[in-house]
Amino acid sequence: MSALLSLHDVTMRFGGLTAVNGVEFAVQEGQIYSLIGPNGAGKTTIFNLISAVLRPTNGRILFDGRDLTKVPTHTLAHLGIARTFQNLAVFKHETVVNNLLVGMHAHLRTDPISAALFFGRARREEIRARERVEEIIDFLEIADIRDHVVGTLSYGQQKKVELGRALAVQPRLLLLDEMVSGMNQEEREDIARFILDLKDELGMTVLMVEHDMGIVMDISDRVCVVNHGRRIAEGTPDEVSVDPAVIEAYLGSKRGAA
């Protein structure tokens, strides 16, 4: 079985700092795959490389047979990859609905002229987009805030909006960077449930960076552990949780399982 996403000897240097060092792993279609490691391990950098926001110093990243290190950033959504950001990256002056509609961008075709006239096809396309967005709003249970300006919402709500925006891309591969950080226990459980639903109901593949070990151990199919830019373990949650290198990395950095 060939993987949906695979990293081959991926290295990223920032000047003298090697943030990612020869990392390899493969995510199969339909998996929930977790990327974990202590602070500064290089997880977000790996996400930035996969989403073509950064270009690696070395290595290849294959998605469905295509090398993501060579495609322009804005084609990612068209290829079927969506992500959320560790630090909020919402469109804060716009409503929840508009944020989600931006996620639909790759699925819409309206050209400037028909947009200016807002007639016929452009209008029908907008109506269809709204239907999709309303589905996501129902799924994430954010109907009560749909017309709110995102910048005025709580941190947890804004993270949900980011998740909704990524879902609006209707991706095959969803990248979630510390989705539940800053959320309370109830919100965390909601998010874990949403992720499982995405996998079970839509067959979506999820790659997530997560510090909440409870969630990682509960819902992941496989886990990759990185430390100082290197992969130190890979396997099922049960395998990595007893791996001496992993225990050493976490105890060494004084970050235990939550």
């Binding site: 926001v53 990612l76 959504a77 919402v90 931006v102 961008h105 819409l108 947009a115 807002f118």
Partner: peptide
């Protein structure tokens, strides 16, 4: 009219967060 289509939304996305806008396909 432009503001209520993908064109106007792409513009405001660029204004509010250009990296996120690019990742969303803009």
């Amino acid at each position: 009219n432009l503001a209520r289509t993908r064109i106007g939304r792409a513009w405001m996305a660029i204004r509010d967060h250009d990296v996120a806008a690019r990742v969303m396909g803009i």
